[in-house]
Simulated scan of single mutants.
Amino acid sequence: MKILDWYILKRYLGTFITMLLLFIPIGITVNLAEKIDKMLANEVPFSEVAIYYLNFTIYFANLLFPLFLFLSVIWFTSKLANNTEVIAFLSSGVSFYRFLRPYIIGATIVCVGAYILGTYLAPAASRGFNEFSYEYLKNNRDARETSNVYRQINDNDYIYVSRFTPSTRMGQNFTLEHFEDNTLQYKIQARSIVYMPEDSVYRLNQYKKRIVGKEGDILISEPKVDTTFSFDLEDLTPLEYIAETLTTPRLREFIAKEKARGSSAINRYEVVLYKRFSLPVSAYILTIIAVAVSSMKRRGGMGINLALGISLAFIFIFFDKVFGTISEQSDFSPMVAVWLPNLLFGILAVYLLNYAKR
C-alpha cells in the first residue's frame, strides 16, 4: 500500500479502538452504578462480578460497534478536513474513490473481526452475561415460554403441556401423540409430567395410554408411571436469549429443530441469525456515509459533522431495533427486517458519496 493508505488506515483502526476503550469503561461504570445494590444484596462473589463485566465488555462491544465505528470515522476524517489534508490529497491528483480505498480496507478488517466476534466470542459472552443477570439481577428468573407448549419432537411424535415450570421441571396436562403414515397409533396423557434427575426418568401422574387398533382401542391407566423419552422437557421451552448464546452453526441447527417443533419464536431466532451477517456489512455502509459527511470542511467545524453523524447513527440504530422488534412480534420477514436498514442507508451512502465527490 502507498503512504496515503497507511496514513489513513492507521488512524481508522486507531481511532476506532480508542473509541471502544473510552466508551466501554463508561458503560461498565453506568451499569455498575445501576446494579451494585442488587449485587451487594445477593452477596455476589467478586470473581463472578469480574467475569460478568468481562462478558459485558464483549457483549457491549458487539452490540454497539457500528455506532463506535461511525463516530470514530467522522472524528478523524473531520480532523483531516479541518487541517485541509483532504484538500491536499485530492488536489494532488488522487480521485475521491482512491481516497476512499484505505477506508474500505479498514472496513474489511472491522467486518471480519465483527463476524468472528459475533459468531464465536459474543455467544459465550452473552450466555454468561444473561445467566448472571437472571441469577442475581432480575426478579423473574424463568424467562421461558411456559404456557401452551406444543412441539413436534421428531417425524412421528408430538407433545403438548398446558404449563411448564422450569424451576421444578414439571409440565401440567401432558399429551404425547405418536403417528405412523399420518395415522395415530397411540396417545399418552397425564395430569402432570416431571423429570426425576436422580433416576433419569420422567414421572407421569394419572397416566393414561390409548393404543389405537383396527378392531378396537386398548386403554391403559395407572396412577403413576416412570418412563423415559427421547426429549428433554426443559429443552422444549428454550430461554428467550438462547439464540444469542449459540455459535452460528449451532444456531442454524437450533432454528431447524425449533421449526420442526412448531416453536412460535422462530422469527426472534432468525433475527439474531441474520444480524450476525448484516451488522458486519453495515461497517462498509456506515464508513462510506461517515467519509462523505465529514470529508468536507464546514464553517461550523467538527461539531457540525459530529452532530450530523450522531443523528444518522441513532436513526440507523432506531431502524434496526424497530424493524427487528416488528419481525419478532409479527409475521414480518426476519430477513427483510434485518437487511432493510442496510438497504436504506446503502442508498443514502451512494447519494452522499456522489454529492461529496462533486
Rank of each mutant, 00 (worst) to 15 (best):
T15M: 15
V94A: 08
A143E: 13
F16G: 01
T245V: 04
L343R: 04
G171V: 08
R98A: 14
V225W: 00
F132T: 06
S263F: 07
Y284T: 09
R151K: 15
I28D: 03
Y7G: 06
D226K: 05
L306G: 09
S47F: 10
D226A: 11
I116P: 03
K35Q: 14
Q172T: 08
D320S: 15
S263L: 06
T237W: 01
N31D: 15
I24D: 03
I211N: 05
Y186Q: 00
S91V: 11
Y150Q: 05
V322L: 14
F254S: 03
N130G: 04
F229R: 03
P223T: 01
E244D: 15
T119K: 04
A125F: 08
N267Y: 02
V44C: 03
M1D: 07
I315A: 11
S167G: 00
A349G: 02
E270R: 05
Y351M: 11
V293S: 06
V112A: 12
V149H: 01
D5H: 14
E131I: 11
F231P: 09
L353V: 10
L4R: 06
T245L: 01
K2C: 06
L117T: 04
F174C: 01
S278R: 02
A256K: 13
V291H: 03
M302R: 13
R163K: 15
G113M: 12
T119W: 10
L286S: 07
K257R: 13
A260P: 00
S47R: 09
I315M: 09
Y120C: 00
T108I: 10
T228C: 08
L233D: 04
V272K: 04
K138Q: 14
G213C: 01
S333C: 11
V112Q: 07
E253F: 07
T175V: 02
E234I: 07
L117P: 02
N205A: 11
S47W: 10
R127Q: 13
V94E: 08
W75V: 05
L184T: 12
R127A: 14
F60G: 03
F70W: 05
E43T: 12
G118Y: 10
E145A: 13
V212P: 03
Y7Q: 05
S200R: 13
I285T: 10
F174R: 01
I51F: 12
L54C: 09
E253R: 12
S167A: 12
T146I: 15
P102M: 10
Q329N: 15
H178G: 04
F56S: 03
T183Y: 08
S327M: 05
F89Y: 07
L54G: 15
V281W: 00
A290M: 10
A33L: 15
P223H: 02
S294V: 08
R268N: 09
I193G: 00
V86R: 02
A307H: 04
I347F: 12
A243R: 01
V112T: 10
R101M: 13
L20C: 14
V291L: 10
G309F: 00
L137A: 02
T168N: 11
K224R: 11
N342A: 10
E234C: 01
Y120S: 12
K224W: 03
N154G: 12
N354W: 12
R141C: 00
K209Q: 07
A256T: 13
T165K: 06
S311G: 14
G106H: 11
L246D: 04
K35A: 12
P334Y: 03
L137V: 09
A265F: 14
F319P: 08
E48G: 05
D217C: 06
F68M: 15
D235Y: 01
S221N: 04
V291K: 02
I159F: 06
N205E: 14
